[in-house]
Design a protein around this nucleic acid. Structure first.
Lengths: 204, 204
DNA sequence: CGTGTTCCTGACCAAATGGTCAAACTTGGC
DNA sequence: GCCAAGTTTGACCATTTGGTCAGGAACACG
């Protein structure tokens, strides 16, 4: 998948800087709306130097996306089928919200890609992501059959968790604008609200 | 604001075709990722002809956005302070979900604009949109004080309605990919799920 | 210190992009 | 059927964009 380990210090530093800059730019403007010059400038490198480390604009984007998906699905992966249903689900929800708080650019990068029809990650979505969701919805269905949580549509439950948590990353500027300039950090209240919402929904 | 009425048939037809095509393109690729050639081709017109009707790429985009915001806020405007709280809120939620089903491109256009930092509609968001939300959250707070609906954070309640309903437009390809090829239309189940969710949340 | 490897850059290229314009073509109303 | 107004277009332009390349600079390491 990724390149082999033997990298020089400079290589590691610069590829990291490039991916960091690319995340900034791609997450805001999407693939087609972003330019190499912009990424180069943000990374503090020259454009030809970018292309020394990555063969093309697309390669940078792909590099970002592949790194992203793994960490992105981690919170869901961690949901333990043998744990307490409510705590497991609430734990997943909280981890997902924390990711929106701590990695908003990653969330936006993903959103941008999906908005454009997911041309570069459709495979991963239909494969890796769908498999994981299929697996976890089975667990949820089991919990429901055991009467541990309320019977709601498992797939839409997942969708609602994604949408509610990612909203605070993807629509951050709107959230802040509506809440007004006094509200410094919307996340604490968001957490309380979302916790209430899912507790009421899932308690049998 | 908009141009004066006296338009020829051709003008009306072509500006409509351009806005229609531009909605297709802008909603998918965002402002910077879209090209005039693409819009022109989609509209079945030549590029110079586009620029006969609109002075610039930006003007087309602005034209779209200003038309959008009005219709976009209509469902919330319709929420009647004197009606039954639960029915009014559920009605709003249902109307919002219907808009995601019937006007997904508009939803994506909006999402794209927000993702990019809302450079072209920040004014409207801080003004028109915020005012309306402020007004309606006041109503919600009143309903809560009267014990008609559960006490949850009014602003985050609005955010959650937006995020849940718009998710089915903005992340449509992901939703369909995860649900698999059998599921033709996710909206009926989505409606049922969302109705359940907010009923449980709002019932005191 | 020397030398092979890695890293970086300025100059360059072809294609794409937003936009202009004069000239040609349609259209509508008399 | 005429003509002024409205409409369309091909040719053109400056700038931007993704990408190349030859050569120079910095580095690693014996």
């Amino acid at each position: 998948m990724t390149e082999k380990q033997p990298q020089t210090r400079i290589q590691r530093k610069n590829t990291a800087a490039i991916l960091e800059a690319a995340l900034d730019v791609f997450s805001q403007y999407g693939f087609r709306g972003s330019t190499l010059d912009q990424i180069a400038q943000t990374a503090g490198l020259s454009k030809p130097n970018l292309l020394y480390y990555f063969p093309s604009k697309e390669a940078i984007h792909t590099g970002l996306l592949s790194r992203l998906l793994d960490t992105w699905l981690d919170p869901l992966r961690e949901m333990d089928p043998n744990g307490d249903p409510i705590s497991e689900l609430m734990g997943y929800i909280d981890r997902k919200l924390e990711m929106s708080r701590d990695y908003p650019r990653e969330s936006r990068l993903f959103a941008n890609e999906i908005l454009q029809g997911a041309p570069r990650i459709m495979d991963a979505i239909e494969g890796e992501l769908k498999s994981l969701v299929d697996e976890k919805t089975t667990v949820i269905r089991q919990w429901q059959d055991e009467g541990k949580i309320a019977k709601v549509h498992p797939y839409h439950l997942i969708f609602s968790i994604w949408s509610l948590t990612q909203h605070y990353a993807d629509f951050d500027v709107q959230v802040r604008a509506v809440l007004g300039p006094d509200e410094v950090d919307p996340f604490p209240e968001a957490k309380t609200y979302i916790d209430t919402l899912f507790t009421k929904l899932l308690t049998p």
